[in-house]
Nucleic acid binder design. Sequence first.
DNA 1: GCAGAGTGAGAAAAGCTTTTCTCAAGAAGG
DNA 2: CCTTCTTGAGAAAAGCTTTTCTCACTCTGC
Lengths: 350, 350
Amino acid sequence: MAEGMEREGIAPRKRPVTLRDVAEEAGVSLATASKALNDQGRMTAETRARIQETARRLGFRPNGLAQSLLRQRSFTVGMLTNDTYGRFSLPLMAGISEALVDNGVSVFLCNVEDDPRLGQLHVDAMLEKRVDGIIATGKRLDRRLPIDLSQLGVPVIYAFTEPDADAIAFVSDDEGGARLAVEHLVALGRRRIVHVTGPARFAVVHQRAAAYRAVLAEAGLAEAPVMMGNWTESWGREAVDILFSKPADRPDAIFCGNDQIARGVIDGLRERGIDVPGSVAVVGFDNWEIVAAEARPPLTTVDMNLAALGREAGLTLLSLVDGKPVEPGIRKLPCRLVVRQSCGRPPDGQ
Amino acid sequence: MAEGMEREGIAPRKRPVTLRDVAEEAGVSLATASKALNDQGRMTAETRARIQETARRLGFRPNGLAQSLLRQRSFTVGMLTNDTYGRFSLPLMAGISEALVDNGVSVFLCNVEDDPRLGQLHVDAMLEKRVDGIIATGKRLDRRLPIDLSQLGVPVIYAFTEPDADAIAFVSDDEGGARLAVEHLVALGRRRIVHVTGPARFAVVHQRAAAYRAVLAEAGLAEAPVMMGNWTESWGREAVDILFSKPADRPDAIFCGNDQIARGVIDGLRERGIDVPGSVAVVGFDNWEIVAAEARPPLTTVDMNLAALGREAGLTLLSLVDGKPVEPGIRKLPCRLVVRQSCGRPPDGQ
DNA sequence: GCAGAGTGAGAAAAGCTTTTCTCAAGAAGG
DNA sequence: CCTTCTTGAGAAAAGCTTTTCTCACTCTGC
């Protein structure tokens, strides 16, 4: 019956070829075919080779759905974010994806905005598709996603977002990051360092400000005011106007709460004819390449290592899925200072 | 046997509850339980209600893997991109995801950089997981992804990337977009319009330049030089230096190839004391919010409607998956002009 | 020549759901 | 009272792979 049948074309169009097809073509049973392809069971080397060759020729590809059903493991995880694919999610995703792809795990990306309905929709879809786990990420360390993930029955990891109680979370160490920045300025001999940052309703604003104050105290420097505003360039320019409109107490360094503010600060200073870094050094936060690298001069800034954070989160999720116990709690991962040109000569020994 | 058994806790820990559990608990067969939950088959309203109630109480959730295996449809699609989750992929994804989530379809996001090995890895993973289709997106309209998707045996849609032969693709209409920009300037009475754009090796550079020349010709205006450089702010500033260093032939409008160039142009003009839009009008391309909205003045720019493009691509893929025939070919979707303040008063009637 | 060991390969179950038959019991009609 | 129709519900197959048994056959050693 298979005698006169010619396989036409190249693409395995229509119905995908199954293990049964391979077995029939090779004249063996399903069991034998399966074992041959998985290098398991006992059989002649010749039989094994023949089956493998047949599979190759037919373009056989095992059906992952069937495998998953049997193994109770889908090699699939869901990623939730409310950062409409934004600045923070991006490197985070890159790290997560990198950690998982090498283990054959694919990632469902789900943007839930801040909409509980949309969140529930995506979570339901994930659970029905039997994801092995979920990674929750966000755009703010101090905001929860609009859905409760604590009772789902699958492992959940939080990355760069406020976790539920008793959860496993990875966040950036903002105090440490701010420390790096301010200590850098101190080491460069700056004495009057001010902090221009975002709105008071952000937790990170207070964390970074606290570290800023601590470093000043440790260095025996007078505390300068912390100026809170928006996360925008225009606030940076405005802050410069405030700081430099009066002749006294002008700073010789400005530590900014993010790169956009820093960029505004740099622009404001340039427009006033104040040299950066000659007269005033500027440090940013976030290392948002497109802003930091194109600033004039290019911006020295704090990088939160989000890709590394994502990778860590991904690997930990895999451990969890494999049943290894993981201590709950919040893990802070260190930031890193990216030195460009807005602070002048780097201090000795760095 | 089930008599003394108390369900403890809330979370369905360990083994998820299956249809068999529901059937046993309700005292019916699997078949009846299935039909009850799907509102199919015949049975007393009372039986149906009892089964549904039981399912609800037990927190039953059908196993999507089993359903997919049977239906030959996984309600899953893969998205490939080489735009390391960048500026273009982002809105594209948002649109695609939006179109699909309402149909219960989840999206595997796969960043393949420009690495054929990584691409093959992801494509293999997708095929094993039996995605219903694939959407290929990129960061450039004139570059292929590093893998051949034409013989995969699943439907493929290309969005914002160079398609393989005989494929279905959605791209932005860059000529049309450039037209919108230049016609806007002409309508505002600008007479000497120059075009500052990116490197000649980009196809869009030539498409947009051609449209620019065509509109000038139609308006009876003298053709000004097309200045090709980099997609950077510094090139925008440099171009201004070139254009305004000599006193003659100064433009009264500049059409920029992207928003970063436009931003550089605006900064360059401001630093020369040239009023925007008073003396010179500026238009950008891409509508990259963070750049366009924070420019001084905020930038009028061309938006490629990438979210709409993604939505269209998603819906078309669904048609394809449902077996509806779709004519191959490249579909160009219109751009849209976002008017902010860098061109002055919008022309009458708009 | 025969018991026991080893070897190659197949049968069958499991994983979960959906759908098509099949069947038994009760109701309606002659 | 017997036949036919209707109705409620279950049995079984299908979708694809993996794994554990089981079985038949061939050596090996005595």
